[in-house]
């Protein structure tokens, strides 16, 4: 479970995030929705402990990220905004490196890679250097790398960005399976459709603040609009892609 409590982040004079609070429970998919520049990526970076908040705190499975960032990292698998791979290493080596960094043994890594390869349809790619991979293939390797330690919490920053329809669909399927496995899945997007299709719970952010929280139905009710798209536009002051 991931909880953000009054998170704030200031870069110089710019307040990127100003008091974001929400809870992403286990076994649910929570979507962080907002236009570009709303503070989604900054929020997720604070959750994965790479950015220190200027205010508020992050709790992951009851651990305060400010007190024990390494323990929080251990409990999270994060697909960050930057998802570069090592081009000279094979997909398998890329994934295994992160497994080793997480202290997994050789056998556990092998099993995990086999499981993820089936889950993400990576099989034929595994032993090729990642140099010539397509964007979708890279994305799959990056996700496998983030999930190699079978984390209870999964954070995905705009996972479908730049992916074609087929890859997007298989990614959605993967997210559903993670939910079924009882994981806490938190992902960000600026695409309404995607959030509507996947999320149990939606957190809408705009200009660094949470403007609405709830199930898709609750959001519709709060915005006083029967149409979800219309509700997004109203709540965020426009800027969300339909």
């Amino acid at each position: 479970m991931i909880a953000a409590e009054g998170l704030a982040k200031r870069f110089g004079t710019v307040e990127a995030v100003r008091g974001v609070s929400f809870t992403a429970p286990d076994g649910r998919v929570t979507g962080l929705l907002g236009p570009n520049g709303a503070g989604k990526t900054t929020t997720l970076r604070m959750i994965s402990t790479l950015l220190a908040p200027s205010g508020g705190r992050v709790m992951v499975d009851g651990i305060d990220a400010a007190h024990d960032p390494l323990a929080v990292r251990a409990g999270i698998g994060a697909l960050s905004d930057a998802r570069g791979l090592y081009a000279r290493l094979t997909a398998r080596e890329n994934i295994a490196y992160f497994g080793e960094l997480r202290g997994m043994g050789r056998a556990a890594i092998g099993e995990s890679i086999a499981r993820l390869a089936a889950f993400l349809e990576l099989g034929p790619l595994l032993d090729r250097p990642t140099d010539g991979f397509s964007q979708g293939e890279r994305m799959k390797v990056a996700i496998a790398r983030a999930l190699v330690h079978d984390p209870p919490n999964v954070v995905l920053d705009e996972p479908t960005n730049g992916l074609d329809v087929m890859t997007t669909r298989s990614l959605r399927e993967a997210v559903r399976q993670l939910r079924q496995a009882g994981k806490c899945v938190l992902f960000s997007s600026h695409v309404m459709q995607e959030v509507a299709a996947l999320c149990d719970e939606i957190v809408i952010v705009s200009h660094g603040r949470v403007v609405a929280v709830g199930t898709p139905e609750a959001i519709r009710a709060a915005a006083g609009s029967a149409d979800l798209e219309e509700a997004f536009v109203r709540l965020t002051g426009g800027g969300v892609e339909a």
């Binding site: 790479l50 323990a71 983030a146």
Partner: peptide, 17 residues
Amino acid sequence: GERERGSLEPLLANPVS
């Protein structure tokens, strides 16, 4: 190289100092 590839951020998300 890690910065240019965009691999530094995911690398540092690992529980390693």
